[in-house]
Write a protein that binds this DNA or RNA. Structure first.
Lengths: 303, 303
DNA sequence: CTCATCATATAACGTTCCGTTATCCCGCGT
DNA sequence: ACGCGGGATAACGGAACGTTATATGATGAG
């Protein structure tokens, strides 16, 4: 019934004292104001201005509208400014979820980049393995996920999700074989997985364990998984003590490498892909875009 | 750029969880909401809603708009309600100016009527003689004036003003001749003015004095004005003491009639007209209308 | 007192906004 | 596989709102 434009006009009339002056101050022509007032008057069913010969003056009802104008216009401006701030990266929030081994390397670097460039953009960060982070993304609990997929295996499995999501490749992460220092193969650069068929294995997260099983099957054996932990420091500790061997992504080894653990190339080589995932809508949010860009740059450094 | 309708839509989407539900709650169709959101998004240059397969969810920027919606809509509703209250006589203010002798009779009665009918309409009241009250009306210092004009004299003089004003006739007020009790003519019902050519005269307000002079001239003499006061109680006191004779409007005599003062009809008879005056714009303001109506009714009682 | 001037009102017109109906497309659940 | 619920899109009509051109009325100066 009554809108912000009407209030703005009434306020201008009160401030300027005439239709013409109000029109100038609002960048309109005089008849525009004249008609606006007439429309307002017939909508509200009241007289809003007194027409004196030379100038005009607001009636009580007109003054009511002019008085409320400030409130409404201020709130409207505030809303506009807040949105503009988000659009202009002077504000904004990104809820990021990443899996543990990325959160030690690429992610902190990217967060630092974002913070340096856009100090007022807040990136909140939660650790989560790919299945949960993607679920959270779809549930609207996060805006951006850093996930991985072992090449050729469950990539196609997630693919069904990925076609409705925006995926940005960050880096390839070589999977290496971790052996204790005194192990017979420890001095080699490369080892075939089949040569370790009889060793006890130490597995990481469920997804990583799945990958191990897959690779082992291709090498012709079913691994004897003696330990299971998501903590790769613990994995390396177990390996160092000679309690088993493990597959460890290179990204982790570059961060924390136990001195008594040898890391060999696996043959045939296996890698996991790490990428940033978000929804098509969120991909167009400036703060999310900025975070993805920072992740890409951080990945180049760590690649 | 951004208007109240847009905010209302964003809030409805947030509250209802889908475009369709929002459309229903606002009484629109679904495409209307869809387009509204699209327009808002391209105007602000930001993504406002995430389209998930089944439902939608607001982005951060969208939430900002939804949050501000309450403020804006509340202020808008408040403004609308206040104006409606004025239109519905549940509120409103009338600044009334009336000349002294009316303020003792018709005006208080009218004010009581207004207060009884519309308890929340406030009528403020200031005493002023016609020239000032009409000036105040044109200066915007009052909304309604109760004025008088002696018939055939300055009526035409004010007429130039009155064609641009709204005049409502209230009543005719007979002008009577006040004589002291023992005066030779005191026992008559009627007296010719010429018979009092040699008496000392007591004049009221400037306008009344003008009327006296005018009537005397027509009767063939120039009155000897011995006293001049705007207070008609004082006038009657002077008359009672035999210090002079006076013309006094009947309206006053009906309120306060000095026991030793005789009031005769004047021949030829003379009356003053009492009317309510306002501007064409103000005449359409409900509270002003109501006050005029009350004045008319009060005048009928006092007529 | 008349005239120039300034301000509002009105008429006529074009554009934009914003709603509608009719339809298509997609994700999801049976 | 199919139906259904929900959003997007196209086409269209009307109302809102701006413009220019012009009339009307009040005011102040010569």
């Amino acid at each position: 019934m009554i809108d912000a434009a009407g209030l703005r006009v009434m306020k201008a009339i009160q401030d300027e004292g005439s239709f013409t002056a109000a029109a100038v101050s609002l960048g309109y022509t005089q008849p525009a104001i004249s008609q606006m007032v007439r429309r307002l008057e017939q909508r509200t069913g009241t007289v809003l201005v007194e027409r004196l010969g030379r100038s005009v003056r607001l009636t009580e009802a007109g003054q009511v509208l002019a008085r409320h104008a400030s409130t409404v216009l201020a709130a409207l401006d505030a809303a506009e400014e807040e949105v503009a701030a988000i659009a202009g990266l002077r504000s904004g929030r990104v809820r990021l979820m990443a899996f543990p081994s990325s959160s030690a390397t690429v992610v902190p670097h990217a967060l630092a980049l974002v913070k340096r460039r856009y100090p007022d953009v807040v990136v909140t960060f939660t650790e989560a393995e790919p299945p949960e982070s993607l679920a959270a993304l779809k549930a609207g609990e996060c805006d951006l996920a850093v996930a991985f997929s072992y090449e050729g295996i469950d990539l196609s499995e997630i693919q069904e999700d990925l076609d409705s999501l925006v995926v940005t490749k960050l880096l390839d992460d070589e999977v290496r074989l971790a052996l204790p220092d005194g192990h017979p193969l420890a001095d080699q650069d490369t080892a075939e997985l089949g040569a370790l068929a009889d060793e006890p294995w130490i597995a990481g997260c469920p997804k990583c364990r799945g990958h191990l099983v897959h690779l082992a099957r291709e090498a012709g054996f079913a691994p004897n998984v003696a330990f299971e932990t998501e903590d790769y420091v613990a994995v390396q500790g177990l390996v160092a003590e000679g309690l088993g061997v493990a597959l460890i992504p290179d990204l982790i080894l570059r961060t924390t490498h136990h001195p008594s653990v040898r890391a060999l190339q696996v043959s045939p080589s296996s890698r996991r892909e790490i990428f940033a995932v978000t929804t098509p809508d969120l991909a167009r949010v400036p703060a999310v875009q900025a975070t993805i860009e920072a992740l890409v740059e951080a990945a180049e450094v760590h690649g």
